[in-house]
Structure formats: structure tokens, C-alpha cells
Design a protein around this nucleic acid. Structure first.
Lengths: 201, 201
DNA sequence: TACTTTTGCTAACAGTGTTAACTAAATGTT
DNA sequence: AACATTTAGTTAACACTGTTAGCAAAAGTA
């Protein structure tokens, strides 16, 4: 019977309609703004039908998370694994990762649960500024002591902060808590940062 | 009249009650679980009274964000600024930062808008694993080529990933988009990572 | 005591995810 | 073709969410 085949096709079509319309909402207003009723509106069906295709709203989000990782791993698979030297390859992977994040921003946000800026103006709040200043002046001092005049202090601050944040954010992704003593990996990264701060011009 | 003074005191007491009860909810179920009605329940008042003390729910979250930055900058202020050498001081700042994050996890989550793990099991999903493998084998290769046998490959992978993620997450905190070309700071960090990968034992 | 201000309430609006119950249409069977 | 059965898609509801308007009771002031 071809009716069942057609039915199957219709189901798949509706499913992909859910996906495309969900994505439209996400790109327009961010993944936090995605709602079952908005999707229902866009696909011109009532809300409960969505549950025939996805177990929950989170499952839809998860779909895009997996899609993101698929795209990312695919992009990495395109990097030639032979001919060029191994360091060059690792570099390529790093920049592929960055390029992916900059191209598929919404995917990246979903993949790592990053919200739209938390409290909008927090970035420039006095409270944060003070923290920032401590880091800045410490970096300034190291540069002064090693007679490094050319380095961009503000960029170094950003590097320092980004590095620290990266370790913590990744650690918090899988665990609720993180060890109170800095991990060996963090120490390594910090020492590396200080080293280049002192020796790089 | 002392009635107004007493009133003022009562207002402050209710405000601090809102704060302590909010914090109780946050520590128990995470900052995403905080709701006006839950707070109202805990302080034994109806929901609208909260708006006499905080403009919105976000303002309450922001309060803790600021509190977090205040604690963090205070801890940094305790680091002696003289006597020890400047690199040592920068090290101290890095570890103070880490210690703060590990001690005040919920504050840190609020400060940088980190949710509870996004899709629970995503961490161990096949999709993510594949991405992870590309990074892992690239690191493995560099270590093999530089005859570095002792380095913990898995830890190096974590460092690599954390570094990349840190730059992206921080960049996405203030902007919706990030430049498609890797920033100078990122290149710096990547080169630093590769350098220590090759030369460190 | 009479009047005004303030306090805190209930009820409502407009949303959210999700589920139960039902109708109407499509399908399968005699 | 007529009936029985499955299933697709609906409405309505539940239990939440943030937030606001309107009102009654309490407190302060004249």
C-alpha cells in the first residue's frame, strides 16, 4: 500500500517543518525565546501535535545541539590529516573551532548553554570593573618588570580572563562543583600565560 | 517621630528577607529555579510586595551578580601588592579567581549566565564524542612528533578545549557575534598551547 | 474623630510546558 | 458500500511563570 508510505512522508515533512520553524525563531530571538506555542503557530497546527514528533521542548533544543556538534566534527574532518605537520593541524583545528563558533553562533550557544547576555549592562558595571582592574594592574606590573613595552595590556587582560573562564565554564558543564585547588591543567595554562607575558614582545 | 525610623527598619528587614530566601532557593535548586512566587511563599507575603523592593526578578539576580563581583574583587584586594614579585602576584590572582569560582559556584553561574548542564546527557553524546576525538588525535600527533611521552593527553585535550571555549564564551558575553577571523589574543593562546605541548615534558 | 497615606492583598493578563479527553477524519475490514 | 477501528488534531485544562491594576484594610496625620 502506498498510503502508509505517503503518511510516513507527511510525518517527516511536518517534523522538518517543526525544525525549520523552530530554527527561524531561534535565529530571530535566541534559543531562550523558543516556545512550543510559537512553533505551533508557525507550523499552523495546535501545540500538542509537536509532541508526536519531539518528546519535549528540550528534545528540540537537543536536536540543534547535536546538529551543531555534527557540523563541527564534519568541519574538522575536512582538515587534511596527512601532508602538513602535526602542529599545523592542531592550529587548523583550533581555528576551525573558532570559525564554527563565529559562523554558527546560535548553535554554539545551545551546545554550551550560553544565554543572551545575563543582565545586559553587567559588563560595564562598577562591580565588575573593579575586579577587572585588579587583573589589569597585575598584568601591567609583570609587563613593566620584564621591560615589555609593546604588549597590548588590554588584550592580555582579555586573554587572561578568557583562559580562566574557559576552564571554569567547561568544568561546570559536567559537574555541579569544581575542585577548590586549581587543577594541573589550569596551572599549566596560567604558567604558559605568564611565560609568554614575560618573554613575548 | 520614631515610627518612620521603625518603618524604615522594617522595610530593610523585608528586603534582606527577600535576599536570604532567594539565595536559599538558588543554592537548593539553581538560579534558574528562582521565581517570584517561590520567594513570596518563603517570606510569607504575597508576590507583588517583592516589587516594592526590587524592580524585577532580573534585578534580584543582578543583586547576586554584583555581590559575586564584590566578593571576588575583595578577595583579590587581599592579595599583598608589594613584597612578592609581580609574576607571583598574577599567579595569586589567577588562583584566587579559581578559588572564588569553586567556593561561590552559584554566584559564578549567575555572574556569567551559566545554566545547569544544558541537556544533561549531551556531554557524553556520540555527536560530541566525535568532535572530541578529532581534537584528541591532533594533540596525540603533536606529542608523538615531538617525542613527548609523559604528557597526559586527556588533560591536554581539556586544556585545549577550555582555552578555546573561554575566548568564545567571553566574546559572546558582550556581543551577539564574534569576528570570523581568530582574534590576536586567541592566536596568542593557541600558539602558547602548542609551544608548551611540544616543549614541556 | 475625620482624612490621607501607605501597605499588602486578590484577581487578572499574558505567557510558559505538558497532558487528558474528545471529535472528526482517514484507514482497514467485512 | 457499510461498518468498525485506528489515528490525527483539536480544545480545554493544569500548574506554573513575571508583572500590573484595583481595592480594602491598616497606619499615620490633622
Amino acid at each position: 500500500m502506498s498510503t502508509t508510505a505517503r503518511r510516513e512522508r507527511e510525518i517527516q515533512e511536518l517534523r522538518s517543518k517543526i525544525i525549520t520553524q523552530s530554527w527561524k525563531i531561534i535565529t530571530e530571538d535566541g534559543w531562550q525565546a523558543l516556545s512550543i506555542r510559537k512553533i505551533a503557530d508557525a507550523i499552523e497546527y495546535s501545540a500538542p501535535v509537536i509532541y508526536k514528533h519531539f518528546e519535549s521542548k528540550e528534545a528540540i533544543i537537543e536536536y540543534f545541539s547535536k546538529e551543531g556538534f555534527n557540523i563541527l566534527s564534519h568541519e574538522m574532518s575536512l582538515i587534511p590529516s596527512d601532508k602538513i605537520d602535526s602542529s599545523e593541524r592542531l592550529r587548523d583545528i583550533a581555528y576551525t573551532y573558532w570559525r564554527f563558533a563565529s559562523t554558527y553562533v546560535q548553535h554554539y550557544r545551545i551546545m554550551f548553554g550560553l544565554g543572551i547576555p545575563p543582565c545586559e549592562a553587567i559588563n560595564s558595571s562598577e562591580e565588575m570593573q573593579r575586579t577587572s582592574n585588579y587583573m589589569y594592574s597585575a598584568i601591567e606590573q609583570v609587563l613593566a618588570d620584564s621591560a615589555n613595552e609593546t604588549a597590548d595590556k588590554y588584550l592580555k587582560l582579555k586573554t587572561f580572563w578568557s583562559t580562566l573562564h574557559g576552564f571554569i565554564a567547561i568544568a561546570l558543564l559536567s559537574d555541579d562543583n569544581i575542585p577548590s585547588a586549581p587543577t594541573a591543567t589550569l596551572i599549566d595554562a596560567v604558567e604558559g600565560f605568564i611565560f609568554t607575558l614575560k618573554n613575548n614582545k
